[in-house]
């Protein structure tokens, strides 16, 4: 397949598109926030006991029937003792919560009784938020340094801009759709960083190679050429990853859904950002052929005729 798509001709449209997405994401994050799950928000734990062993699935069915969402149901010691954890942000009055849950369960099976009810704090506290964001910042900084050393500072800025772009938009997607944001989604966002970075570096590598190899052509032309040359690889890798993710999305069950959704959005955005954020940013910063030339070594006496 030989592509010759003038990607960077559309870079102005892309700038507007990205800007709109970013503004939308940040606005949504600021106003609606994330629909954080039990891991982050804390909630209520209700422990129930059945006379006879119960299937976890029966309980999920009973709760679904009364439209009680986001419950984590676990066996507790035996197969007739069960704990049901509910996040804080469900639309049920806190005082009536155990009553509502219990009557939902009783509608399915009558041999159930409440053992206790307790408030649960968030499993991941402020510590994760602080440590996590510190880790993320440090990681972005170190990546920038590495890319600056291996490539050029303009590329470094481009790659980090692309990463920030992807993370904000994926988070914005979760805020906008109000799909539950739990620990698996957090992991997915970290995975998106890995994927998007990989993609960006592959494109950069080809750009560097072509800058050194192709004698003529403007920066824009060379970059376009590089994007086209790596396009097959970009498509194939996206396809293989999306194959896995689609399988997770379709067959993976309810709890892997958020994870798969985050990664699918992330892979699409990550592929787009390698071209239109990472590369376009480097171009806008004025990457030139000279930037990537190996530094010339000043050899003593190099300007004199050799003696022999």
């Amino acid at each position: 397949m030989n592509f010759n798509i003038p990607f960077l001709k559309f870079k102005n449209i892309a700038v507007i598109f990205s800007a709109l997405l970013l503004i939308g994401s940040i606005t949504s994050l600021a106003t609606k926030g994330l629909n954080v799950g039990l891991d982050f928000s804390g909630g209520t734990m209700i422990q129930v006991k059945y006379d006879e062993p119960v299937e976890i699935q029966e309980i999920h069915k009973a709760l679904d029937a009364k439209n009680i969402q986001g419950a984590v149901v676990q066996y507790f010691g035996s197969s007739s003792d069960v704990t049901i954890k509910l996040p804080n942000n469900i639309d049920i009055d806190n005082d009536k919560l155990d009553f509502v849950v219990l009557s939902a369960l009783e509608a399915e099976r009558s041999d159930v009784k409440k053992v206790r009810r307790a408030f649960l704090s968030a499993a991941v506290g402020d510590e994760l938020k602080e440590d996590g964001s510190l880790a993320l910042m440090t990681a972005l900084f170190c990546i920038m340094v590495y890319v600056a050393i291996r490539f050029e500072w303009k590329f470094a800025l481009g790659s980090v801009a692309a990463l920030a772009h992807d993370v904000i938009i994926v988070a914005g997607f979760f805020s906008f759709t109000q799909v539950e944001f739990d620990l698996t989604v957090l992991a997915a966002i970290l995975a998106v960083i890995g994927y998007s970075l990989n993609d960006t570096i592959v494109v950069y590598d080809r750009i560097r190679e072509n800058f050194l190899k192709m004698r003529n052509g403007s920066s824009l032309e060379i970059m376009n050429r590089s994007l086209n040359q790596t396009l097959t690889r970009t498509l194939i890798t996206s396809i293989t990853t999306l194959l896995v993710l689609t399988a997770l999305f379709v067959f993976g069950g309810e709890l892997i859904h958020g994870f798969a959704t985050a990664l699918i959005v992330g892979v699409l955005i990550g592929t787009y950002s390698s071209i239109y954020v990472a590369s376009a940013a480097a171009l806008a910063l004025g990457v030139k052929k000279e930037d990537l030339m190996p530094p010339e070594i000043d050899k003593e006496g190099a300007d004199q005729d050799p003696l022999m």
Partner: peptide
């Protein structure tokens, strides 16, 4: 990125 997330991040990260 992975190394730093491991060194500084806690728990699930």
């Amino acid at each position: 990125a992975a190394l730093i997330l491991f060194a500084i991040g806690t728990g699930p990260v």
